[in-house]
Design a protein around this nucleic acid. Structure first.
Length: 405
DNA sequence: TCTGGGGTCCTAGGACCC
DNA sequence: TCTGGGGTCCTAGGACCC
């Protein structure tokens, strides 16, 4: 069955939102990044900044070298996720098969509603018009329409900003011939190098390569996946909107403002991060049975270790104790630049208050902490995938677009 | 004043059981 | 007593995504 998949990609999302909320920033080159004083990189650049060559992943000083007038804005995840929810709500009017792929990307399956390419274009234009009207014309999106997710995503990438690209059956052969590996989602820098060594540079060459060889080189699953990519094949469905995959792991990492050899300092961060993990576990009603810790040295190598517990936990201090037990064995061979801790082997807890008085007391304390920290606590970038379950963050001082008109 | 932070999936090897 | 095979689970590490 021929499908009609839409991919929606918000253009320069974080930067555009900042410009939309603050008219002073409009028309100016801005970069969104982490808090001042932290070692941070550019995580979003406005189109004005991109024109100067500012790009994602750049260091502060690199970005400034490209564009001396660049304005740095500290990111406000709550603001972005809140707005994303608006997009999701609008898109839900068009289909119940919708996946929130990230905070600024959505996949929609419109197969049931569409008979022709013209239908698809018409619906895409309605959708874009809805977004424009209800969110504001400062934010634009690029839309790709294709028979599968991979090609739809490719399509949305082909025209920016404010694009609308249909990749139909006639267009596919040309796409496979021209598109370079580097542009394909699923083929990262490492794979690109390995494929290049095999003389494979375009999708068409990849698709023409013997499947058996690809599987031998990259494993059965990855080999098949690569071969499919090369032929423009992608059978992955767009799930139903309410069909949310459960979270499999939760963790936090922190890059120190300066490298350290002090275990005390590391443990301080470890405790803070572990409490953060615990709060998120409880907030989303999860418990974990495995705790991992990670240190990254100054040379960017690192050490990782995990421990499996006899029971499930969701308490930050317990998580910290497990992590610390591991790290107590470690010798700090080099200065440390990053500390991380997290929980895996998660299950949904569906937790009830326990009867034992001591436990009860502990749980009450934990709950109070959650409330306080959710209100005043740190900015946790939520997985966009969980957005349609709940959006807890409230946006202070966020102006809706029509207030500017 | 080199390189953030949040995840997922696949692979390969070893342990263990039948 | 020796030998083999299959299946499953666990774990570390690598690659990728936004």
């Amino acid at each position: 069955m021929r499908r009609t998949i839409l991919h929606i990609d918000m253009n320069s999302y974080f930067a555009s939102v900042e410009q939309m909320c603050n008219p002073f920033l409009r028309g100016k080159p801005i970069a969104v990044g982490g808090a001042p004083g932290t070692r941070t990189i550019v995580i979003a650049a406005s189109r004005e900044a991109k024109r100067y060559g500012v790009s994602l992943g750049m260091l502060h000083h690199e970005a400034l070298a490209c564009c001396p007038d660049l304005l740095f804005i500290e990111g406000d995840p709550a603001k972005y996720t809140d707005l994303t929810q608006t997009f999701i709500d609008i898109c839900k009017r068009y289909t119940d098969r919708l996946e929130v792929y990230s905070v600024d990307e959505l996949f929609l399956d419109l197969t049931s509603w569409i008979k022709s390419k013209e239908d698809a274009l018409r619906i895409a234009r309605y959708l874009k018009e809805d977004l424009r009207r209800e969110v504001g014309d400062y934010l634009t999106c690029s839309v790709g329409i294709a028979p599968n997710r991979m090609l739809a995503k490719l399509g949305s990438d082909m025209q920016k900003p404010d694009g609308l690209v249909v990749i139909d059956d006639q267009a596919i052969p040309a796409i496979l011939e021209w598109v370079e590996m580097v542009d394909m989602p699923g083929i990262g820098p490492r794979l690109k190098i390995r494929l290049g060594d095999l003389g494979i540079r375009t999708l068409k060459q990849l698709g023409g390569y013997p499947l058996a060889s690809l599987q031998q080189l990259f494993g059965p699953v990855n080999g098949q996946r690569l071969s499919d990519i090369g032929r423009g094949i992608d059978h992955a469905p767009v799930p139903y909107v309410d069909d949310i995959a459960p979270t499999k792991s939760m963790g936090h990492t922190y890059t120190l403002s300066a490298d350290t050899r002090s275990k005390d300092e590391i443990y301080g961060h470890l405790l803070r991060l572990a409490e953060k993990v615990g709060r998120r576990l409880r907030r989303d009603s999860y418990e974990g049975r495995r705790v991992w810790v990670y240190l990254r040295w100054d040379d960017f190598t690192g050490r990782h270790e995990a421990v499996t517990l006899p029971r499930y936990i969701d308490d930050g201090y317990e998580i910290y104790r497990c992590g610390r037990q591991i790290m107590d064995q470690w010798y700090l061979v080099k200065p440390v630049r990053l500390v991380g801790i997290g929980a895996t082997m998660l299950k949904q807890s569906g937790k009830q208050l326990t009867v034992l008085p001591d436990e009860h007391k502990r749980e009450g304390l934990v709950k109070a902490q959650d409330v306080i920290n959710d209100r005043y606590g740190e900015q946790t970038i939520q997985r966009a995938r969980t957005l349609n379950v709940r959006l807890r963050t409230k946006v202070g001082g966020f102006k809706t677009p029509h207030q500017f008109h």
